[in-house]
């Protein structure tokens, strides 16, 4: 296949790259199971719409979207795990689908929900194996493991079987494994998922320092806003397999304008609908109420509410990141599928 890419200045570049999966549709019941022996229905699911993007060397890109939006599919295409149904991709000048060993030596993919080291081995044994696989100098690899483990504060678990480590310790081990060969391109798929706040913060801080020092090109997916805000130079929002936002994190924050959720109760239900500052209206007959307000609206609205008789239990919550993303994606695309959509 002749390439339309020539001497690309980009670390990662795609042109109209898409991926469609075919799935088998089986209606409920035994009769339909038997029918499936000779007649099967299939349907196509577009996991990634035609996507064109360029990522320069050293840029940290945050890739955000709902479950099933196409984030992981894009990472799989860019790492050579799956072939695109159409279009072309180039990473460091290589076609990922060819899985050239020179390409594979320069990338690393960290899947936060999967073990990539050997479950039955100690991290030390796994790293020795990885050093062989990547043709690394054994002494240099050992030193690198030691240095990374020191920074991550986990030298004490290097000789314990992976299966016996906590989730946070395992993730640290996976990170060392992913960085051992100093990849030029790093795909981080939910690196902090399921971790407690301390472990999240520790890994985030480590990655922040690592990318500042080594300057790899990174694509990071995460459901945690802090991961994206602290690490990413650029934000890509993906919905139903399409890019719906490509810009800076600051631009995104300005666009979505952070809102707060104000909840309170009244001693008696409201007798009639009550307008608040011509911005909101509290419905009649309700006793437990909530309002979404901007930072600017918060003080005057709060003042108005506290002046009501019998008001109690006032709470102010930051909205969940998922809700902010969902609202944004709904506004941008009007296409967001229901939560928990199946990931192919």
């Amino acid at each position: 296949m002749s390439s339309t890419f020539s001497q690309s200045p980009w670390a990662i570049e795609t042109r109209e790259v898409s991926r469609v999966y075919q799935t088998y549709v089986k209606p409920e019941g035994l009769a339909n199971s038997l029918k499936g022996f000779w007649k099967r229905q299939h349907k196509d699911k577009i996991a990634l719409q035609a996507t064109t993007l360029q990522i320069p060397k050293g840029q940290i890109v945050g890739l955000v979207g709902a479950n099933g939006a196409g984030k992981t599919t894009l990472l799989k295409v860019l790492s050579g795990l799956v072939r695109p149904s159409s279009g072309e991709a180039r990473v460091l000048g290589f076609n990922p689908a060819e899985r050239d060993s020179r390409f594979l030596r320069q990338i690393s993919i960290l899947l936060g929900q999967k073990n990539q080291l050997w479950w039955d081995l100690t991290p030390h044994d796994s790293y020795a194996l990885l050093a062989e696989i990547y043709d690394l100098d054994k002494t240099a690899a050992k030193k690198r493991v030691h240095d990374l483990a020191e920074i991550l504060n986990c030298t004490h678990v290097l000789e314990t079987q992976l299966r016996r480590l906590s989730l946070g310790e395992r993730m640290k081990m996976e990170i060392i494994g992913a960085l051992l060969h100093e990849p030029e391109v790093l795909y981080l798929d939910e690196p902090t998922i399921g971790l407690d706040i301390v472990a999240q913060s520790s890994i985030r801080k480590f990655l922040e320092e690592y990318v500042a020092l080594k300057k790899p090109t990174v694509i990071l997916t995460s459901h945690y806003m802090d991961d994206i805000a602290k690490l990413a130079d650029r934000l890509l929002l993906i919905s139903q397999g399409s890019m719906v936002y490509d810009g800076t994190v600051e631009g995104f924050t300005r666009k979505t304008e952070s809102k707060k959720l104000l909840r309170f109760s009244l001693a008696e239900p409201l007798a009639a609908a009550l307008p608040i500052m011509n911005l909101h209206t509290l419905p009649a007959g309700e006793q437990n109420l909530s309002l979404q307000v901007t930072n600017e609206e918060l003080a005057p609205v709060l003042s108005k509410i506290t002046s009501l008789s019998g008001v109690k239990d006032i709470t102010i919550d930051e909205r969940d990141f998922e809700d902010v993303i969902r609202e944004f994606l709904e506004k941008e695309s009007r296409l967001l599928p229901s939560r928990g959509a199946h990931q192919p």
Binding site: G80, S101, R102, L104, I107, I109, L111, N115, Y134
Partner: peptide, 12 residues
């Protein structure tokens, strides 16, 4: 199971 993913992305 898809655990081959971690092998396919390595140079071997």
């Amino acid at each position: 199971s898809g655990s081959i993913n971690s092998l396919l992305t390595r140079p071997f």
